Amino acid sequence: MSTPDPALREQVSRIYQDHHRWLQGWLRPRVACRHLAADLMQDVFVRVLSAPDASDRLGAVREPRGYLATIARRLMIDYFRRARLERAWLQALAEQPEAVEISEQERLILLQTLCELDAMLAGLGPRIRRAFLLSQLDGMTYRLIGEELGVSEVTVTRYIAKAFHHCTLYSLQADT
């Protein structure tokens, strides 16, 4: 941020002196933390100083409190949106299972199983395979699968029945 001209610094200084206590008092109950209120209040004045044509904007302001409150409200929304996103991310991380070391033998068994599943599912048509995976892996209802695929619920029922029939035949052939 470049150094503002002396006239702008004087305008902002006057608004700050006249309204910073009011703004902090306005923010405090909305964010429930005096430190956050102080940070947001400072961010408001940084925003005022760094705005394009800041001097002209301040000159056009008739209600400084309304102007400051609008900026503060937008900063609060941004802050709470980021905080909600951060909490969701941390929750998703906390719900992840811990990494488990598996032996080379277990890794080989898993890889073979995945290859067998892939081969089994490759024998299904793409729409049947998608319906089967949505049902078995995502736990979707037949109605939702039908909406997803653009087919009726009856068609989804037929797809799933064909998939189970195919899996059963594949399993029986693999056992022999």
Rank of each mutant, 00 (worst) to 15 (best):
A37H: 12
R21A: 04
S103K: 09
G125Q: 04
Q96R: 00
D138Q: 02
T176E: 15
L114S: 00
V100F: 13
A37S: 01
L117S: 10
R81G: 00
D175F: 09
D175C: 08
A94Q: 14
E98C: 03
E86A: 07
R73N: 02
M41W: 15
E10K: 14
A32F: 02
E63A: 08
I145H: 02
Y159K: 02
V154T: 12
A83G: 06
V46H: 04
E98S: 06
Q173G: 08
L111M: 10
R65H: 02
L93A: 02
L75Q: 11
I128K: 09
A99Q: 10
Q112S: 09
G25Q: 14
L114I: 05
I145K: 07
I160D: 09
S13A: 03
E63D: 05
Q24D: 07
F80L: 14
L40S: 09
S135T: 10
Q105H: 03
Q173P: 06
A88D: 00
V46P: 13
F80K: 10
L133E: 08
H165C: 08
Y142E: 14
M76F: 01
D56C: 10
H20G: 02
R62F: 06
L58K: 04
P126W: 05
R47K: 11
L114G: 06
T168M: 02
R14F: 04
F164S: 13
R28T: 11
I77T: 14
L90R: 12
L58G: 00
D5I: 10
L108G: 13
D43Q: 01
S13L: 10
T155W: 11
S135N: 11
L58D: 00
E63V: 11
A72I: 05
T168H: 02
R158N: 01
P29C: 04
M41P: 07
R62N: 05
Q11R: 15
P4Y: 01
G66R: 12
L169I: 13
A161N: 12
A88P: 07
H166L: 07
V48K: 01
L36M: 13
I145N: 01
L133Q: 02
I128S: 06
A37W: 11
A32K: 14
L114M: 05
S103G: 10
E10A: 06
L8C: 08
H165G: 00
D39H: 10
G66W: 13
L133M: 15
G139I: 13
R65T: 11
I15W: 15
Q91E: 15
F164P: 04
L133C: 14
S103Y: 05
L117K: 11
H35M: 12
R84T: 10
Y142G: 11
H35T: 14
F132K: 01
R107Q: 09
E116D: 10
D175N: 15
P52W: 09
W26L: 02
E10G: 07
L149H: 00
I160F: 03
I145R: 06
G125L: 03
G59C: 11
D5T: 12
M140N: 05
C167D: 04
R129H: 02
P64I: 05
R129Y: 07
V31K: 09
Y79I: 05
A99E: 03
G123T: 13
E95K: 15
A92L: 05
I71A: 01
W89K: 14
